[in-house]
């Protein structure tokens, strides 16, 4: 790993570890729709931060802004103090890796090859060395394979290395996505609904995997709908409702916040963002649909 941050189990210590990701005033508009509205978010090294919110709140859109898939209309995202260029491959190179809400593996490649693709930014050999096949090429390939196998062992997929990704069961596909993301040696891992569609046991296993990743010194930002998962896991939780950050704080703070409960249960009350500017709920939903279509393109 490039980042060798010592294990920092408590949020207080983590904060001392320094800021890893800083998003300032991120706004994302699709035509007339504002999917993400002026969101600030900070992730410190060694932290697990949760991002929750009702469907269509703009969580995935915000993720896409962070990873360069979208260029934010306004605002900046910086990683370790430098502003990130809005190109996905450069963001990954800088040290942010991600998984996708709807699994996006390279279906017709083997499990091992998927992870090797994740190593792309950390290896150098180009076309020429591939054709000439000097000793350097073999050395780099071997190192890549060893590292990939380590990651597969870490995620528990080592015995399936030669299988096609498409033939893995659902839960293992999720794990493989995480292994592939880890292969790029990130300092920050973004997980987009890592437990969607999982049974309680698998969710529990994913939880342990995320802790193990954090213990390796990688900060994690996770979107999830499973509240038990989020509150068990996260040092800090941010709540996004209709594109705006409603609350941010520890699990207790968020769990006890009336506005969060209202946002999820749909109870009307004064001071909710939807009431303030009168944006109908459907708008945010549409924005999210648009974002997913963009994603699929």
């Amino acid at each position: 790993m490039t980042t060798t941050i010592p294990q920092q189990p408590t949020p207080a210590d983590a904060a001392a570890g320094g800021t890893l990701l800083q998003a300032r005033g991120v706004i994302m508009r699709f035509g007339g729709l504002t999917a993400v509205r002026n969101v600030d978010l900070t992730v410190n090294s060694g932290e697990i931060v949760g991002l929750i919110g009702p469907n269509g709140a703009g969580k995935t859109t915000f993720f896409n802004c962070l990873t360069g898939l979208y260029v934010p209309t306004e605002g900046t995202v910086s990683y370790r103090g430098t502003v990130l260029p809005p190109k996905p491959h450069l963001v990954t190179k800088a040290g942010i890796a991600r998984t996708f809400q709807n699994i996006r593996l390279f279906a017709n490649m083997t499990v091992l090859e998927n992870v090797l693709v994740g190593r792309h930014t950390r290896t150098r050999e180009g076309l020429f060395s591939a054709i000439v096949r000097g000793p350097g090429f073999h050395k780099a390939e071997r190192a890549s394979r060893e590292r990939a196998m380590e990651l597969l062992a870490f995620t528990g997929l080592a015995d399936k290395a030669e299988h096609l990704a498409r033939n893995l069961p659902y839960g293992e596909q999720r794990k493989l996505e995480i292994a592939r993301a880890l292969a790029s040696e990130p300092g920050l891992l973004l997980l987009d609904e890592p437990t969607a569609g999982m049974n309680p046991q698998e969710t529990r296993a994913t939880e342990e995997l995320v802790f193990a990743i954090r213990d390796q010194g990688i900060a994690v930002l996770v979107i999830e709908h499973d509240m038990r998962f989020i509150f068990n896991l996260c040092d800090r939780v941010a709540v996004l409702v209709q594109g705006e950050k409603l609350v941010e704080g520890t699990s207790e703070v968020v769990q006890n916040d009336e506005r969060v409960i209202a946002a999820y249960l749909g109870e009307p009350f004064e001071g909710a963002p939807a009431d303030e500017d009168g944006t109908p709920a459907a708008t945010a939903d549409d924005a999210s649909t648009t974002s997913e279509q963009e994603n699929d393109r």
């Binding site: 898939l69 990954t92 390279f106 490649m109 190593r119 792309h120 180009g126 390939e141």
Partner: peptide, 23 residues
């Protein structure tokens, strides 16, 4: 059968995911 070849196949399989993997 090399880094570049794998990235070609990755692009063929899913270009968005491939760029998100640093290609």
């Amino acid at each position: 059968d090399s880094r570049i070849g794998r990235s070609w196949i990755a692009i063929r399989e899913d270009e968005t995911a491939a760029t998100a993997m640093g290609i």
